[in-house]
């Protein structure tokens, strides 16, 4: 499986990362190298092996349904680049 510039563009789009042409060229080489290298896993026989989702094998602890209010609106918005009237503000989204 080899990566060409349209794949790099598509993946960059999915990841929402702007890349310029120079970066694109470098990434094609690097990603091909890395993916070629990890491709050696294909040689490992994994028939009848269950995928390992986590090394954590204790059951999931559940929480009681209690509502808390630990943060106020100003804390939530404090780090935001743009806010107004208690809202986060972003360029208009077209639906």
């Amino acid at each position: 499986m080899s990566i060409d510039n349209s794949t790099v563009k598509k993946v960059a789009k999915l990841a929402r990362i702007e890349i310029n042409e120079e970066e694109e060229t470098t990434l094609i080489t690097e990603l091909n190298n890395i993916l070629g290298w990890v491709d050696e896993l294909q040689q490992v026989n994994t028939d009848s092996v269950e995928p390992m989702l986590s090394v954590f094998n204790e059951s999931m602890q559940m929480r009681e349904d209690q509502a808390e209010s630990n943060f106020d609106n100003s804390q939530i918005l404090d780090n935001s680049p743009e806010s107004n009237a208690g809202f986060f503000v972003v360029p208009k989204v077209v639906e």
């Binding site: 809202f87 986060f88 503000v89």
Partner: peptide, 12 residues
């Protein structure tokens, strides 16, 4: 989307 011409407002 209708609070402002240029922006959308987000409530979480």
């Amino acid at each position: 989307h209708d609070q402002d011409i240029k922006n959308s407002y987000i409530d979480l």
